[in-house]
Write a protein that binds this DNA or RNA. Structure first.
Length: 596
RNA sequence: GGGGUCGUAGCUCAACUUGGUUAGAGUACCGGACUGUCGAUCCGGGUGUUGCGGGUUCAAGUCCCGUCGACCCCGCCA
């Protein structure tokens, strides 16, 4: 076999005159009857190779048979192209390889789609079925290379900052909190199951108790929940945990990490420190806890003013302890009736029963609502929303969740419609001061908003002593805040973490505040609680969705485009046809019976 | 679990609204010509279970019902 000694994309002018061997795939062929041109592709790029019957008749006749995606090796002299045949579109366009010898390493069937820049327009179902071909396309190939560089630079940064990369078990036990687990039946213990980790949470805390000081892992995580374009059943987190730190220490190191990685891999400069906002602030201004701060549109609470109107929708919402909020869309007065109708339908997804509006024109406000609102109240509403001619003011009146969901998502929707988003911006944002607990309607109890190992604090400003925290956990846990934080990038939640509980009594009281039986939480987490008794240092950590980060940096729409072998919305790998049935023998060994 | 979009040649799409005779185009592919192309060109060729099943009709790619699959969203998930 001809042995490759150079890559297509790495041939330099200094190689002219040398005999070289290239190997790769036939990207395209141009047969002129006499001379034949082949664009040869490998991981690095494309190189034109020329078959000329005057150089080697046998090779030329082989060249005539070559088709797309055949795998060949060619030996010949690198030659400078004549002035008029230089191709400026090709990185190697000033040279070509004059084929002396060719070896067909493997013929290819006609590929199911063409491998070029337009391949991303092909149906995804088809591309996933032939993923190994899809990955040959320039975009996907580049995404894989960038992903590699990203993880390497993350590792470089963390290694330099005294983090140890440590692997934690993939086979764990299932716990009730959080997402649904993927389960693995145990052959040696019939009726018992391992669970795949949703995150390495408890083990990384135990590594801190072990005194390993700083841990990280590029960790695969598994969640058996319904999929979205930014959610796969298995995904990768940059997971870390640090001892003897508070929130600020975490913020600083993470800001440095992103600054460093983004500079080195994506050659962009970002500003640090990242802005910080409290949960209360973002919910107020943006209606969601992952706001896209590239959009300069804001919600306002006008409940106090709505009270003074005669608009029944407002009055009714307020009488049911709801809220009335408004969203001023700059330049939105040009929305047509149809567009407003579509937006009304859009907010109905989130439970909104309607979408009231006031257009601000050169002649003043226009709306069917105006007759219900006294003029001085109108003025105050417009003033509070900083309305100007050309704007449109939308209203939401319902319970807090519906209003925030509707207007928060509407804000993003209209920003897209009006092209208000600067795609070149990278807007990071820390969110802190989350409530510790949130009420779960189905279970009729409070559950941890982040997770039950998160340190509580007694107010937004004040941490409180262990004693105060325990007291508050017993008396009014719903009023506590969490020492947790999320990092948002351009409206996508990149990751989150918290300062953990390292005191046994606090941890126990926390479980009790979640209305868990002592027997139950010891059965689930006893090993962690026990570890807290043996000199657990103060510690905290954070984890980031690696797939999401790369997706955002590459401006891809879906994390599927940055994962080599992703699954469909139904969790199926179309390439390998996973999941699949197993034999009765396997089931029997595992002590499992299936029902249809 | 629910709402929506889509499914026609290897691929991208048209024909669908208003049912009508032989389902078209580009590209890919196949055959031929051609010694400097690089989206090669020129000549010739349609390669199809209109996702699948059923129904309405003289007649269905088109209308109806069901089903399967992909995608987007709600719920779910941090």
């Amino acid at each position: 076999m001809l042995k490759r000694n150079i890559y297509c994309g790495e041939i330099k002018e200094s190689d002219i005159g040398k005999k070289m061997v290239l190997a790769g795939w036939v990207q395209s062929y141009r047969d002129h009857g006499g001379v034949i041109f082949i664009d040869l592709r490998d991981i690095t790029g494309i190189m034109q190779v020329v078959f000329n019957p005057e150089i080697n008749k046998v090779s030329h006749s082989v060249g005539e048979t070559l088709r797309s995606e055949d795998v060949i090796a060619v030996q010949g002299e690198i030659q400078k192209r004549s002035e008029e045949t230089i191709n400026p579109k090709l990185f190697t366009g000033m040279v070509e390889l004059k084929v002396n010898e060719v070896e067909v390493l493997n013929k290819s069937k006609t590929p199911p789609f063409e491998i070029n820049e337009e391949a991303s327009q092909i149906g995804e179902e088809h591309r996933l079925t032939y993923r190994y071909i899809d990955l040959r396309t320039p975009v996907l190939k580049q995404n894989m290379i960038i992903r590699h560089k990203t993880t390497q630079e993350v590792r470089n940064f963390l290694n330099k900052n005294r983090f140890l990369e440590i692997e934690t078990p993939i086979m764990n036990k299932s716990t009730p909190e959080g997402a649904r687990d993927f389960l693995i039946p145990s052959r040696l213990n019939h009726g018992k199951f391992y669970a795949l980790p949703q995150s390495p949470q408890i083990f990384k805390q135990l590594l801190m108790v072990a005194g390993l000081d700083r841990y990280y892992q590029i960790a695969r995580c598994f969640r058996d929940e319904d999929l979205r374009k930014d959610r796969q059943p298995e995904f990768t987190q940059i997971d870390m945990e640090l001892s003897f730190v508070d929130e600020t220490d975490i913020y600083v190191i993470i800001e440095h990490m992103f600054k460093d990685v983004i500079k080195k891999v994506y050659d962009k400069n970002i500003l640090t420190p990242f802005p910080r906002m409290s949960y209360r602030e973002v919910m107020g201004q943006y209606g969601m806890d992952k706001p896209d701060t590239r959009i300069d549109l804001f919600l306002a609470d006008i409940s106090d003013l709505a009270e003074k109107t005669n608009f029944q929708v407002f009055k009714e919402a307020l009488s049911k302890k709801g809220i009335v909020k408004s969203l001023n869309v700059k330049g939105g007065a040009r929305f047509s009736r149809k567009e407003i109708e579509d937006l009304t339908e859009y907010v109905s997804i989130f439970g909104a029963k309607g979408l009231a509006w006031i257009k601000i024109t050169d002649k003043g406000p226009e709306s069917l609502l105006l007759k219900y609102i006294p003029v001085q109240i109108q003025d105050q509403i417009l003033k509070r929303n900083k309305c100007q001619a050309g704007d449109i003011l939308f209203f939401g009146a319902d319970n807090h969740k519906i209003v925030n969901d509707a207007l928060g998502n509407l804000r993003v929707k209209v920003a897209e419609m009006l092209h208000l988003i600067d795609e070149n911006k990278l807007n990071f944002l820390w969110i802190d001061n989350f409530p510790l607990l949130e009420y779960n309607v189905e279970e009729k109890r409070f559950i941890a908003m982040h997770h039950p190992f998160t340190s509580p604090k007694i107010s937004e400003k004040e941490g409180g002593t262990d004693k105060q925290i325990i007291e508050a956990l017993r008396k009014n846990p719903e009023n506590l805040f969490a020492r947790s934080y999320d990092l948002v990038l351009n409206g996508t939640e990149l990751g989150g973490g918290s300062i953990r509980i390292h005191n046994k009594a606090v941890q126990e009281t926390m479980f009790e505040a979640l209305k868990m039986d002592k027997e139950l939480y010891y059965q689930m987490f006893g090993f962690l609680i026990k570890a807290l008794e043996y000199g657990a240092p103060p510690h905290g950590g954070i984890a980031f969705g690696l797939d999401r980060f790369i997706m955002l940096m590459l401006k891809e729409d879906s994390i599927r485009d940055v994962i080599a072998f992703p699954k469909t919305q139904k969790g199926i790998c179309l390439l390998s046809e996973t999941p699949a049935e197993v034999s009765n023998i396997q089931l029997k060994e595992l002590g499992i019976k299936t029902v249809k």
